[in-house]
């Protein structure tokens, strides 16, 4: 299933954070969302998994406006991995993953054999099947993130929405998680801070700046030195990755693009949109 976002406006805490965003997440592709802090990535994703209601514009799921679907119905198609990490309430790993079955269950209904099967498969997919009986809060950060991803898999979604899934993970866990996403071949909309990770795992990228999409296209076309300067306010060159051949962005960590470069707030003068 594809996601179309059309002229989306979303307010968060009384402020319009997403203002007129357009983007497409194509069927079976990994679509990346990048942009500086405060550019509206998380807020845009929250509108897709229905934590926030758009103030204007639409989110279309396979052509249907999300507002025409009940929250439960859209949760059967769209699963989210927000940045929340849960709190200590003595839930086991299996119980956390089984939460993914929530949109399919009526009140009082228990899990049947099919549910248990889906939960076990999701646990196996993320390599956590040996830890099903452990307390969720006793896990390490990387293990927790895999369990939360398994919960999203257990929702049996057509579309995965992931907000900074590699945050706080060491490099090996980042690589494992992104490889897992690639192997799943589901329609995926993912926000990432690490531009090099985005360049190597995403089929297409959308660059968000001050609440609007200012560039879209294959990573190599989007991640240019000019865009790094205008949107992120940093100096960078783009070279070929010696191992993979992907775009590799090498940053100048010593000085920003220009001393008074606006890091966020106003949009850059030149806006490209490759479609």
């Amino acid at each position: 299933m594809r996601i179309d976002i059309e002229d989306l406006h979303v307010a968060y805490a009384g402020r319009t954070v997403v203002a007129g965003a357009h983007l497409v997440a194509a069927e079976g592709e990994i679509t990346g969302l990048v942009g500086p802090n405060g550019s509206g990535k998380s807020t845009l994703l929250r509108a897709v998994y229905r934590h926030l209601r758009p103030t204007a514009g639409r989110v279309l799921l396979a052509g249907t406006d999300l507002r025409e679907l009940s929250p439960v119905r859209s949760a059967r198609h769209v699963a989210a991995l927000p940045q929340e990490r849960g709190s200590d309430f003595e839930l086991s790993v299996r119980e956390v993953v089984a939460m993914g079955r929530t949109p399919y269950k009526r009140a009082f209904a228990g899990e049947d054999a099919a549910d248990r099967d889906i939960v076990s498969r999701a646990l196996a997919d993320v390599g956590m099947d040996a830890h099903a009986g452990r307390r969720f809060t006793a896990l390490s950060g990387g293990e927790r993130q895999r369990v939360l991803l398994a919960r999203a898999f257990a929702q049996d979604p057509d579309v995965l929405v992931l907000d900074e899934p590699t945050n706080h993970l060491d490099i090996r866990h980042q690589v494992d998680l992104l490889a897992l996403l690639r192997s799943q071949r589901r329609t995926t909309l993912v926000s990432l801070h690490d531009l090099n990770a985005a360049a190597s795992v995403c089929d297409r990228l959308h660059v968000l700046h001050a609440g609007a999409v200012v560039a879209s296209g294959p990573p190599r076309d989007v991640l240019t030195p000019e865009l790094m300067a205008e949107v992120f306010g940093v100096r960078a060159v783009v070279v070929d990755h010696p191992l993979t051949g992907d775009a590799l962005i090498a940053f100048d960590h010593r000085a920003p693009a220009s001393p008074q470069a606006p890091v966020s707030g106003s949009r850059p003068a030149t806006v490209r949109c490759v479609r």
Binding site: R50, H51, P82, A107, V161
Partner: peptide, 24 residues
């Protein structure tokens, strides 16, 4: 008891619960 799954989802966070189809 009829809303037990909703209560479980609340433990993980409001955004997680919303993503599971719950009107938080």
């Amino acid at each position: 008891q009829a809303r037990a799954r909703g209560l479980n989802a609340l433990l993980m966070g409001d955004e997680t619960a919303a993503g599971l189809g719950i009107d938080v």
